[in-house]
């Protein structure tokens, strides 16, 4: 029986040769992402912006009347709504960011939700209400805050653990890679104006987890090789480590990809944003482990001494045994 090998044995690709241009591209992409986030802004869903979201299916129609819906809801006087197709052609989500004076008054916010649903139900016979969210400004503010704190705390703790298990340079490298992944994901959401909700935070967390896994596998091999080949130049050693783990990197990424693609293609519409983000993060995370997390070690000056104590307990015992002390 012949087994499938996706990566030939003993590859010797000089990944690190292109570290400067690739790293420059990474930094540029991060900068572009943040510029996009700051200029175009994230398309916050009701979780983070507050307001109403109504999801509905027009059961007898081929396609939902998106343009008409926008006008009809706008005519109610709660500001201009965002009407988007959601999953199937006949499903829509209607989002309204209520004017401040309405959202401040809880009863008025409730009234607005009922107003929209009642109007549309009267207008369309086949209007089926699939769900609605109504989040007050207070709660959405808390969501923004807790999501940010949770992300920062998790990233900080991750860097700390890697510092303890490896060396501080590795901690910096891993943190930069995570920052890279999160930035690019945010940039993508700003560029395509996809709805940014709490689910996307879950997706970003999954991306962080996956990218971290990838980074640690390569770092572990670097640590091992640093002990093994004490005289090797660092770029060559990093290349060796990346090549040695290449088969695993390709195989794992491919496996996850084949698991994610069906979810992306015919999974539930409500999962689409999350799965799309994770799929994107799969590529970004793999790339960042090779081209952000590894080269940083060269610039931060990791040496084999980091893992081979100069005067270890073992050395002392050996000296004692030889009668040198």
């Amino acid at each position: 029986m012949k087994l499938l090998k996706l990566v030939p044995d003993d590859t010797n690709i000089s990944f690190l040769k292109w570290r400067v241009p690739f790293f420059a591209i990474s930094v540029l992409l991060i900068a572009v992402s943040w510029a996009l986030v700051l200029t175009k802004g994230l398309n916050y869903g009701v979780d983070f912006a507050g307001g109403l979201e109504v999801r509905a299916t027009f059961t007898q129609s081929e396609e939902a009347p998106v343009v008409e819906l926008r006008d009809q809801v706008e005519a109610l006087g709660y500001g201009s709504p965002v009407v988007q197709r959601f999953g199937e052609d006949n499903q829509v989500s209607i989002r309204v960011r209520l004017p401040d004076e309405v959202s401040a008054d809880k009863e008025a916010a409730q009234q607005a939700a009922n107003d929209i649903v009642d109007t549309l139900q009267a207008e369309y016979d086949d209007f089926r209400l699939d769900g609605n969210d109504n989040v007050s400004g207070k709660v959405s503010g808390e969501f923004r805050q807790t999501a940010l704190y949770a992300l920062l705390a998790a990233m900080g703790a991750i860097a700390l653990y890697i510092w303890i298990r490896f060396e501080w340079q590795f901690g910096v490298g891993a943190l930069f890679a995570l920052f890279h992944d999160v930035s690019l994901t945010l940039g993508m959401f700003a560029l395509f104006q996809l709805e940014f909700s709490l689910q996307i935070i879950a997706a970003i967390l999954a991306i962080i987890g996956y990218s971290l896994n990838d980074t640690i596998v390569i770092y572990d091999r670097i640590r091992e090789n640093l002990k093994k080949y004490r005289k090797m130049e660092l770029p060559a050693l990093l290349d060796l480590s990346v090549n040695e783990t290449l088969a695993r990197t390709v195989m794992t990424s491919l496996t996850l990809l084949v698991a994610l693609l069906p979810l992306l293609l015919f999974g539930p519409a409500s999962l689409f944003g999350m799965v799309a983000a994770i799929t994107l993060g799969l590529f970004v995370g793999t790339y960042s482990s090779v081209y952000s997390a590894a080269p940083i070690l060269v610039w931060l000056g990791v040496t084999s001494d980091s893992f081979v104590p100069t005067e270890s307990v073992a050395d002392e015992q050996e000296k004692k045994a030889r009668g040198l002390v």
Partner: peptide, 12 residues
């Protein structure tokens, strides 16, 4: 006061 409400239809 209701400060957050989410409803998902059983069909969906």
């Amino acid at each position: 006061a209701v400060i957050e409400e989410r409803t998902v239809g059983p069909d969906l």
